[in-house]
Write a protein that binds this DNA or RNA. Sequence first.
DNA 1: GTGTTTGCAAACCGTTTGCATGTCC
DNA 2: GGACATGCAAACGGTTTGCAAACAC
Lengths: 127, 127
Amino acid sequence: MIKRSVQRELIRNNLAHRTDHPTADMVYQSIREELPNISLGTVYRNLRFLVDQGDALSLKLGDGKEHFDGNVNPHFHFICTQCGCVDDIFMPSIDEICTTASKYYSGDIKGHSTYFYGTCPNCKTKH
Amino acid sequence: MIKRSVQRELIRNNLAHRTDHPTADMVYQSIREELPNISLGTVYRNLRFLVDQGDALSLKLGDGKEHFDGNVNPHFHFICTQCGCVDDIFMPSIDEICTTASKYYSGDIKGHSTYFYGTCPNCKTKH
DNA sequence: GTGTTTGCAAACCGTTTGCATGTCC
DNA sequence: GGACATGCAAACGGTTTGCAAACAC
């Protein structure tokens, strides 16, 4: 039986209202401003919980840290190789890509994640 | 100035002749059979070297370990969520996907990685 | 009351690094 | 001989976990 907790609701809410694809520590630092006694372990446990429940996405961007995304609708991600920021890219064919891949693979394809790498608009204007 | 070493050539060769997308430790165990004194640090250093040189790909599959791919030609990857195996998927549109994404994003997109998740043919037949 | 969640701190584990030694050119 | 590479072991950093106390229902 799942019980409510202030910590979990704060974490769920924090993730739902930000679009910067934070790491566990970023969520921890943010929550600590309103609940100073929360522990990092609790943040990790609840982020894992949310991912397992399907209420958050786990992103592996290649920087050695796990990032989290409160937007569970299928979409692509862009990672800036200069500043490390992560943006969402919504474009059509997001469903077709699996269908196409299925034709080239004999197993069952149920999901996918696509990361684009390059220079974000902000870093681009700095040169 | 880059110097040759037996260790580096063995690692490069090992990666080139396998398609199972091994972790550093898997390469280490494999090389140790012919060169028992090689150290794990050397394997890590040389895999990083090969990736930096563009002679190997680094894959973040979500299992917390870095995987390596000696095939640097652009292709998609399939990861079995049951056994964890990794297969290559070669299909068209691999170049188009960046072009399409560029139309939906104002930054410079220079590369991408796409992982498909599901059940591999081997695990599928077990049920 | 019973089973879940928390805070804390230690453990874990993949990876990196410092350093003395060895190797290539 | 000088720059680069290695082996070893310790350090590092993100994440997980064991446990007693606190909490939800």
